[in-house]
């Protein structure tokens, strides 16, 4: 089976590049075709890449605490651009300070993200969820 296309990048004016490289390597090894946009990626760039590569998931990282502002509106913009069913994953240090993760998660789920991960999540778990979610989307399409 062909590896599934996914788009990866660090959103906003965030230039933390080390984690991004690790994610690229990890998801590639986990069987995905990763289109890595690197750091400082705008919402528009995520969407453009998803369209050209026919990716069914966008993986958004944010590590510098401004994730809430940067990530807001991505779901709406995807719908505007015709990416109605795309999976949106977000992870990293999403907010500044010590907000409990459950609250952070709730906030991002409300924004339209399908899965939200904190800084200490297990990547194996993320990859497993991604495989499952993509599969169930495909089944829904069929």
């Amino acid at each position: 089976m062909r590896p599934k296309n996914i788009v990866l990048g660090v959103i906003g004016f965030d230039c933390h590049s080390v984690g991004n490289k690790i994610l690229e390597t990890f998801f590639t090894e986990a069987g995905f075709k990763v289109h890595n946009l690197g750091v400082m990626v705008s919402q528009e760039e995520f969407i453009n890449a998803a369209i050209e590569t026919n990716s069914k998931a966008i993986m958004v990282s944010s590590l510098y605490g401004h994730g809430e502002i940067d990530c807001a509106g991505l779901r709406e913009r995807c719908i505007e651009k015709g990416l109605d069913d795309i999976l949106l994953y977000v992870g990293g240090n999403l907010v500044v300070g010590k907000t409990p993760f459950a609250q952070v998660e709730e906030k991002f789920l409300k924004m339209g993200y399908d899965r939200v991960f904190g800084p200490d999540c297990s990547l194996e778990h993320v990859a497993e969820l991604l495989h499952q979610d993509l599969l169930s989307r495909e089944e829904k399409e069929d």
């Binding site: 062909r2 296309n5 075709k33 289109h35 369209i51 050209e52 026919n54």
Partner: peptide
Amino acid sequence: CGGTDGGNER
């Protein structure tokens, strides 16, 4: 043109 290899076909 359009789509990467293995990307968008539609």
